[in-house]
Write a protein that binds this DNA or RNA. Structure first.
Lengths: 193, 193
DNA sequence: CGAAAATTTGATCGAAGTCAATCATTGTGG
DNA sequence: CCACAATGATTGACTTCGATCAAATTTTCG
């Protein structure tokens, strides 16, 4: 199966692992083949899992005054989890759902900790993932400060060039903090040029 | 000096350190006593230092089209650094300056790495700091999505109740992504109630 | 005390939100 | 496999919040 390939990608893309560590990671993770629409995490639920996306995509979202607001998209070779629940062991404010049929690697916090305590390079890997996430959020914060709706849309496009082929405009709009209608008008304006 | 007390606070507030590790941290960090207005990091500069604030406060900001935009405030017992430069070893997009006369603990990346490689609990500490930062940014992102200027101001106040006693309204306004004038009007409205 | 910086106040304008209706696409069950 | 819901996207009319520009006032500090 491509689980080995997935672990190879994690090692290369985030932080190199020894082959012993790679095979231990293999033993401590679970492969999931799930349909589009599956809910991985529900609001209020304790979730001690993190998911690596081998194939497909997922989003995290939360409800604010009943409105669905997307907070995070994850595609092939990305990790996604309810970071609040995973790291603080509190009920998740987020839902996480699959936007396509997907193949995932699931790793529990318990196993992450076990591996991190045993293998220096796994400890390092888990740190690198957190650092990368932090830096992406940093980027996202400044791309939201003092930018017009159009600039924010172009910013997402520069990070995920073909996001609109995979994610509905509704979700993209809430992700960048504008209404669906405004996004639709921006796209119309752009296509005219 | 209160440097020992500072290290005690770090240990208690972030992640517990053994006494051996604490004294090694002491040997590998430097105390700085600096005046208000001092620039710790300049845009474009490589900065491989992180600063723990024993006393005083600092802010990180960047220039967007010549406008000064605050990105981060740090007070007593907070860390501050140019995270891009520190973690990616790239030129800093930020300036960091002191907003008050301050006492700081300065630690270099080199020493952080050395200590993290030697002491498990220091490795853990550095991970905890990054995780906390990531979670704070997460919080900040959602407090910026779909909130009115007034809600954003109240959000900052709920995290830093007396921020307006220490930080100028100009800086607070840019931090939450609104203009100084709007913030002034919000405060007037609130004081009437 | 006086200059510079910070804040307040006012008037005006525009970007984007809201509400509402229509159009397009997708997917499901008969 | 088609029909028709259900969901997603577009378009329009209107409104509002907050930006901008400009000036006055207050505070800070050498």
């Amino acid at each position: 199966m491509d689980i080995k390939k997935a672990i190879e990608i994690i090692s290369n893309q985030y932080s190199l692992l020894t082959s012993e560590c790679k095979s231990e990671l293999l033993n401590n993770s679970k492969i999931l083949v799930l349909e589009k629409g599956t809910t991985l995490v529900r609001e209020g639920q304790y979730s001690d899992k993190t998911f690596f996306i081998i194939n497909g995509c997922a989003r995290a979202f939360y409800l604010k005054d009943g409105k669905d607001i997307s907070d995070w998209f994850a595609f092939e070779n990305d990790f996604i989890s309810s970071i609040n629940s995973f790291f603080l062991n509190i009920p998740s404010p987020h839902y996480i759902e699959l936007l396509e049929d997907s193949v995932l690697l699931e790793i529990s916090r318990e196993n992450v900790e076990k591996l991190a305590n045993t293998y220096r390079d796994f400890e390092r890997l888990s740190k690198v993932i957190v650092i990368k996430t932090m830096l992406m959020q940093q980027e996202r914060i400044s791309s939201m400060q003092f930018h017009s709706a159009e600039q924010k849309y172009e910013n997402v496009l520069s990070i995920h060039p073909n996001i609109s082929q995979r994610i509905s405009l509704t979700h993209i709009a809430s992700y960048i903090g504008i209404t669906l209608e405004t996004l639709s008008r921006i796209r119309k304006r752009q296509s005219r040029i």
